[in-house]
Simulated scan of single mutants.
Amino acid sequence: MTTSRLEIAYRRLLRCYPPRWRHDHEDELIATLLDLADATGRTRPSPADIADLVVHGLATRLGVSLGLVPVVVRQRTAILALSSLAVLSAGLFVVAEVVPKPLPAYAGNPPGAGLTFGPFVTLGAAIYPLPVAALVAASAGARRTARVLLGLTCIAVCAAVLVAAWTDIARPPLYLLAVLFLQAGMASAGMPTALRRRDLFTAAALFCLFLAAAGTYSLSLVHSNGYVYYNNPFAAYRGPDGLVDSIQRILPATVLVGVAAATVISLRRPGWAVAVFVVGAAWSLMPIAESIRYYPWGSANDVVSGGFLLAAVPVVLAAVMDLSRAASPHGLGSAPVRQGSAPPSNDPDQG
């Protein structure tokens, strides 16, 4: 390979970097790489060079992409994601893992039938305490500990999928695990340095209210239909009128109401409508995935498709308008600075 071909190879690797970065630094870096290659007698990029350029290039590109989203939007999304993740995990731990009883032995089931993970129903019991602990750590100001616990949540979700595939131990539905993973990632990525406890506790209280409404709705359906399996294993996860099924039914209306309320709040504190939209979209993966998986499009049982299609237009419009306000020069933290005054902050504590 000639020197010119080596330069072409390096320039191809540098395409991992964003265009603006390449415009400012590409020629300088290429010259340095070619000098190092001449000094060592190399005629092609080394594996170390390839890994270094690809990893750092993608990281730089990701940093540029994150920079397009106002800091306050990322922080408020993290607050909602953390609170919703912790509340959902706590609810599922109790309703789907602790409350269910073994299948009755008189039906020919062995003792403990239906409990596949010790005294618990699924591997979810090993995942759910982590987000709850992260919420406690964040509320206590231990931001680093909270991020570590959220990272462990992502690892535990992936491990649960693998363990369930290799053993007879059951796991929660895959679409539910995907929602947990996404919320943990969003909460970790945007967690503010100084977390406003009032926002965190308010969000957690609202999600508790939502989960309580879903649980009450589920119990009312079970009672009216005369079902007796509500405390049996997997009923909360996969049973009709179970907790997860009830969450999916009321989710479209809840997201619509939540975005409407956040839009009003965002007139003075931009960013909340976008945060509700993003977190609501993550939750919406559950009913959308189940609808695609089990029901033909447009069937009578496909409650989700119509609800989300009706809610999509106003919700997206409100989120876009809120994002433009948060990113505008007159948005939060962007007011002109008077001489002798402190610079504005994008921290939601200051909003």
Rank of each mutant, 00 (worst) to 15 (best):
V72P: 00
A142L: 15
F120T: 13
L62Y: 05
T153L: 08
P110F: 02
V157G: 02
G108S: 15
A86V: 03
A96C: 03
E97C: 02
F120A: 10
G91D: 07
V121Y: 02
A126F: 12
A142D: 15
A90E: 08
A133E: 08
P102Y: 02
S89F: 00
A146T: 01
P129R: 14
R76E: 10
V99H: 00
P110M: 12
A133Y: 05
V121K: 00
L62R: 09
V69H: 13
G118C: 14
G114C: 09
T60A: 15
Y106T: 12
A138Y: 13
L103D: 09
V148I: 10
L80S: 01
L149Y: 07
V95L: 02
A90I: 01
A90R: 00
L130Q: 08
V136Q: 08
H56N: 14
A125V: 05
P129F: 09
F117L: 15
L130N: 13
V55N: 03
S65L: 15
L68C: 13
A113C: 07
R76Y: 13
L149K: 04
V132W: 10
R74M: 15
Y106H: 10
L130E: 11
V55R: 12
T153E: 11
V136S: 12
A90N: 06
R76N: 08
L85D: 05
L150T: 06
R74P: 08
L152Y: 12
T77F: 00
R76V: 11
N109I: 01
G118E: 15
P102K: 00
G63N: 09
C158K: 07
